[in-house]
Design a protein around this nucleic acid. Structure first.
Lengths: 145, 145
DNA sequence: GGGAGATAGTTAGCAGGCTAACAACGGTAT
DNA sequence: ATACCGTTGTTAGCCTGCTAACTATCTCCC
């Protein structure tokens, strides 16, 4: 039954991939851009990875791609020579401005025929499952089984 | 917002992976076994891939693994020399019998604090989103854009 | 100040989804 | 019969998640 979530997630990824492909983006790169915008420029990779709920190496790879596309850049962080701060480039900011309009069609296609109440229920249930899963995994790691 | 589904799916995969690891299985191999059982032995790879909602090459790889573990075997199909029929081995059937008990803990951990009504709502909403996404993708493929 | 342990980021390589391209076979129409 | 098209399954290789192991740095405590 949790498999249904996987199916929807893969379809959603395909839809987003299609929607942002005119901007030379993919779902994962798009997600990084959006969350960087949401978190605010100048944040660390660690903070961004936490926000995205992915591991650092996954983010490292995606950031390399975005940096190669000159959409995002890493700058040395003041006060910590290990860390980087993340910033949009000029071009990155222009792309961000265009994003919403490309995504909107997907959003309305997916959520269009659902009521606000249903979306609220969905968010609530999914959040509960997420927290349940976190708890399960945390519990079954400290112990051997 | 669809990203939350991805997070839950990844956590769920980790939980299942953990739960079935004593049987030398992973979530994807487990899913193949369960769906083969559900669909009935003797079915074709195509039918099983459809049931799992994955593409044939993904299934091919997983079946290779299961065959190497002597849990499942491919047999030539009568009446169609291209196709295979899929069968559990003796060992595979024994493992299937053990599966439910290993999975149960995960299920109760995830769904335990949700009401039947919530699960029903979830199934309904997820199903709607799945069908919306299918429609979107179908629509935006026939056309150039 | 100097050493032990935590933390930020990277690299390497695995897992399992996908598409594209192919071989082998089936089915149908001429 | 043969020619063509659809189907089944495989191979090759991309994408993006992950863990493990590493470097470089920071922090804290003696």
């Amino acid at each position: 039954m949790g498999a249904a979530l996987g199916r929807v997630h893969r379809l959603w990824r395909q839809a987003i991939n299609h929607a942002v492909s005119p901007l030379e983006l993919t779902e994962s790169r798009w997600a990084v851009m959006v969350h960087l915008d949401h978190l605010g420029e100048g944040c660390s990779q660690h903070a961004l990875a936490h926000q995205l709920a992915i591991e650092m190496p996954s983010l490292t790879r995606t950031l390399n791609q975005l940096e190669q596309q000159t959409l995002v850049e890493r700058q040395p962080a003041p006060n910590d020579r290990r860390a980087h701060t993340l910033w949009f480039t000029e071009r990155g900011r222009r792309v961000m401005a265009d994003l919403e309009q490309h995504i909107q069609a997907v959003r309305t296609a997916i959520y269009g025929n659902l009521t606000d109440e249903q979306l609220c229920q969905l968010a609530h249930i999914v959040c509960a499952m997420e927290s349940n899963l976190h708890q399960y995994l945390e519990h079954h790691r400290g112990n051997g089984k």
